[in-house]
């Protein structure tokens, strides 16, 4: 009788461990709130150091971009779970629909809508927390799939 071993970590665990291992994402304050096969949702708190317009306190487009780039990678990780892959971004287009208000946390949602053998296709959007029907940004990205054992990745990351 054969059966798949029960994965040690849930999708949410994997996403959170991944963010912890990425220094820039820790700096952005990314908190993964939900992770299932279809989508990942995370939060980036408003921080003074991420402001792009000092006159208005609006977050820099680059900060929203970096946040969503990370959430997109997590969506691929959640989709391939319980396998583990490193997924460098191939390309990413982000449209800034409106400016997120000063002091508002930003929610990022990413959905991996197609997984081919080597490439993952991801849709992304960002909202102000509590205003999830009016996106501040929407994007499309592709990620390369590079399969490695997760033990290797996390062990090396501690060195």
């Amino acid at each position: 009788m054969t059966s798949e071993p029960t994965p040690k970590y849930t999708r949410l665990d994997i996403c959170r461990r991944f963010v912890t291992s990425v220094r820039h994402s820790v700096e952005l304050g990314i908190d993964v709130t939900d992770a299932d096969e279809q989508r990942v949702r995370a939060l980036m708190p408003w921080q003074e150091k991420l402001v792009g317009n000092p006159d208005t306190g609006v977050l820099h487009g680059g900060a929203v971009f970096a946040f969503l780039d990370q959430v997109g990678g997590l969506a691929v990780a959640a989709r391939v779970y319980p396998e583990f892959e490193i997924t460098p971004t191939i390309d990413f287009r982000l449209d800034h629909l409106r400016a997120p208000a000063k002091g508002k946390n930003v929610v990022g949602v990413a959905e991996c809508y197609r997984l081919s053998e080597h490439v993952a296709f991801v849709r992304l959007s960002a909202f102000e927390e509590g205003q999830e029907d009016e996106p501040v940004a929407t994007g499309l990205a592709t990620y390369m799939r590079m399969k490695i054992p997760s033990e290797n990745y996390f062990r090396k990351s501690k060195a």
Partner: peptide, 17 residues
Amino acid sequence: NLGNPTLPALHGGAVAG
């Protein structure tokens, strides 16, 4: 600005920003 800690490599988002 680090992303992948094993290479190590810069975070693509930091480069984009």
